[in-house]
């Protein structure tokens, strides 16, 4: 099975990158690609609980992240070091994503057939 790694590195709503990354993930999964989704850098802000996107007139990124498992995308991670850099705590982040360290991230990169970074 083809392994695709999607890395989402931007904060939600400021640009369309978070949305574009999620749409790519769903489309890939729909045609049978095995998707691993990693939140890195500012992308971790997408995982914050209690997002209200109505004030920025956008669909909620948090809600769309929660749909990933229903599309058989169970490998959803964030990079622990980036969480520390951003002074976030794991309690504030959605439980859909699991914490990984840089080593594990490097391994994911190494075993993927393709990588897309948004």
């Amino acid at each position: 099975m083809t392994k695709l790694l999607i890395i989402s590195t931007q904060a939600p709503y400021v640009t369309s990158a978070a949305q574009d990354a999620l749409e790519a993930a769903l489309a890939a999964s729909n045609v049978g690609v095995e998707v691993t989704f990693v939140f890195a850098q500012q992308g971790l802000y997408q995982l914050l609980d209690g997002q209200d996107s109505t004030c920025v007139q956008r669909k909620s990124i948090a809600k769309q992240i929660n749909v990933l498992p229903l599309y058989d995308i169970d490998a959803v991670y964030y990079i622990a070091e980036d969480m520390i850099d951003l002074a976030l705590s794991s309690q504030a982040l959605t439980s859909t994503a699991e914490s990984i360290d840089t080593n594990k991230f490097n391994q994911l990169c190494a075993v993927s057939n393709a990588i897309l970074r948004f």
């Binding site: 083809t2 790519a24 489309a27 890939a28």
Partner: peptide, 12 residues
């Protein structure tokens, strides 16, 4: 986008 990922799937 499915077209791109299908191509990826086939070639890979």
């Amino acid at each position: 986008m499915a077209d791109y990922f299908s191509a990826l799937n086939t070639s890979s």
